[in-house]
Amino acid sequence: MSQAELSQAGAAPRSPRPLWSLGLLRSEITMTFRRWRTLALLAVLAGVPVLVGVAVRIETGRGRSGGGGGGEGGPAFISQVTNNGVFLVFTSLAVTLPFFLPMAIGVIAGDSIAGEAHGGTLRYLLVAPAGRTRLLLVKYATTLTFCLVGTLTVALSALATGALLFPLGEVTLLSGTSIPLAEGLLRALAIAGAVALSLVGVAAIGLFLSTLTTSGIAAMATTVGLLITVQILDTLPQLETIQPYLFPHYWLSFADLLRDPVYWDQLAKNFGLQAVYAAVFGTAAWARFTTRDITA
C-alpha cells in the first residue's frame, strides 16, 4: 500500500493539501533506505541465501545428499534444492524468518521513534508540525515497507543464487504434485508476501518499545531480546498452552502455500495473530506517544 501511495504523491503536482502530508512518508522511506545501517542489514539478508546455496552446492559436490535439514517445519525443502534452484527461495526464507528478518525489523522499528528522540530531531518534526499520530503512522508504514523489502531481498537473492548454482524446472509441491516453473515462481512470491506479513507483529512491538525510551539502541536491543526470549518459549513443551498466542508460533506456516490445495488453516491463524499484535501494540504505541512529554 505504501508503494501505491508513494507513486501518487510523486505524480500529483497539483494535488491539494491532504496529499502534501504524504511528503513525510516519502521523506521517511527515502531517508531509511539511504542510511548505511539499512543497506548493511539488507546486505546481510542478501548474503544468507548465497551462503546456504554455496554450502548445499559444496555438500552435494562431495557426493553426499543435502543433509536432511535442521528444524522441524521449514528446511524440509533443503534436500530439494539440488534438484531445483527455486527451492533455495523457500529454504532461505525458512532460515531467515526465525531470527535474521525479525532482528532486522527490530533494528528499524526500535530506532524509529527513539532514534529521533535521541537525536533531538523529534521535537523539530513535532513543531513542524508532523502531528504525533501521523508521525507514528509514517514510522509504522516505513517499518512495514522494510519488512517487504527485506523479505524480497532474501527471496530475490535466493532465486538468483539458485538459478546460478542449480537447475531450474518444474516444482514438486509438498503434497507430491508438480506445477510448472512459472506457477512455482508465483508461489514463491506468495510465500514472500506471507513471510512479510508474519513480521507485522514484531514491527508493532518494536514501534511500541521505541515510544518508551529516548535511546534507539535500548529499544532495538529490547525488541531483539524479546524476540529471542519468545522464540525460546515457543520451543518449551511445558508452555504448550500459551504457545498459540506467541507471535512467532505460526511463522513457518508459509510452507502450507506449497501444498495442493493450499492448506489455509495455519496461515489464517498466523495472519489473525499478527493482526491482533499489530492492533494491541499499535494502540499502545499510539496511547503512549500521543501523551508523552517530549523533553529530549
Partner: peptide, 26 residues
Amino acid sequence: IEGPALYGFLSGRDNLRRFDAADPAA
C-alpha cells in the same frame, strides 16, 4: 528549541527538505 538537532548523515539541504516535508501545510 534548546539548540539545533539535525540528521548527521544528511546534508544541510536534505535536513531542511526533511523538516519541510514534515509540515503538512508546506
